[in-house]
Design a protein around this nucleic acid. Structure first.
Lengths: 210, 210
DNA sequence: GTATTATTGTGAAATAAATCACAATACATG
DNA sequence: CATGTATTGTGATTTATTTCACAATAATAC
């Protein structure tokens, strides 16, 4: 079982690049081409594939169509993934309006909040009371949730999600969530990303200056 | 020169946890406590500090105040960091309204777009024509930029930023940007994060099932 | 002031990830 | 059908990161 997050992210990148190559009319690809497109080494590409038992054709490279099928299976993209969002504020709203998920086979099935002013059952993506989270998650067999609430509410929401049966959480709140070990958390923290950039900009600047 | 991104992110996390501990009235902290708060091992905390020449007091732990000073210096938080956003759409708008940056000493100085309908020089955060990016960046000595435009425009914006003198880019567009090597890029890609979650939820599920 | 104890700081060891390098092999060419 | 060539697949090697383990040492107790 491969649990190297970077490796899985590379698989996603390969997949995205392959779609681009396919739409340009390409049918086959060499590890070298894919490596260039994604920004890694050719050996890394082959090693990653080898890890997942994906094989190509010596001297002939990889057939894009079948490669995509395999990657999509590994990445769970052979079916539409339904997710829920908790938090109908600025961020939750932006996520609901964002149309990049659809073409990736990800569907926001509903949004939940505690503020009745936000409720809207008639909307394309319904906004429902948080009390209905559990039932909705069960009824729709949902396993992925997005936390888009202020940090003070995040811990409680994480617990509600976990109790409801959600097994993967994308967390936008800038705090560490504690969940059972069978729940996976990916954090998106813009302050951290910016802070990180600042550090690297600073040290690279100093290095050049010397 | 430490160039391990994860290590720098841990420093940010230590810093955030330390502020929390400080606000609870704590004055000193042990590597063990910090480790618990951040979710790493105590040895990792000490090793990270050691890497940056930060030392505590054997048997007495670390004094939170001076530790924070050192971390803030390393992370470039001893002065307010001004950044620009390019793209005044949903995402750019949400970023401008987001008030989490301010308390981290990060200030969005201006936003740029190509659509005259978005221009607003009188706003708290002015929205300006992209043509003015270069002059603004120079005049305000800005080094960090956020790309919040659709993917088709991202490559061009990255080039404009890089030419204008920006040295760190936070990129929300789901494509790989090519920039000179003295420009650092951090990508935020929600589709990728979700896809990644799906993978881990799937494999953990299978593992448990067997 | 001596002994005891808790905690740091950091080389050494272990583990994880990436790269190398080359045998295996499929296709092309004559 | 033999020879040459390009590309894969992967064990071996290298590099990076984390963890271990324990000497050094500062605070505390007696």
């Amino acid at each position: 079982m491969i649990t190297n997050k970077n490796c899985i992210i590379r698989l996603s990148r390969y997949k995205n690049s392959l779609y681009r190559l396919q739409s340009l009319g390409f049918v086959k690809v060499f590890s070298e081409n894919l490596a260039d497109a994604v920004g890694v080494t050719a050996a890394q590409v082959r090693k990653d594939f080898s890890l997942f038992g994906i094989s190509g054709n010596r001297r002939g490279g990889y057939e894009i169509g079948s490669l995509l099928e395999k990657l999509n299976t590994i990445l769970g993209k052979d079916q539409v993934q339904k997710v829920v969002v908790v938090g109908a504020g600025h961020l939750g709203g932006a996520l609901m309006r964002y149309n990049g998920f659809e073409k990736e086979g990800i569907k926001i099935a509903a949004c939940f909040d505690i503020d009745p002013a936000t409720y809207d059952r008639a909307s394309r993506i319904p906004v429902l009371p948080i009390e209905e989270l559990r039932a909705f998650v069960k009824d729709n067999a949902i396993r992925i949730g997005i936390i888009a609430v202020p940090d003070v509410a995040a811990a409680q929401v994480a617990e509600q999600m976990s109790n409801a049966g959600i097994r993967g959480i994308l967390n936008f709140a800038p705090i560490r969530l504690k969940v059972p070990e069978d729940v996976t958390i990916n954090n998106v923290n813009l302050e951290l990303e910016l802070e990180n950039l600042i550090y690297f900009v600073n040290i690279l600047n100093k290095t050049k200056a010397k």
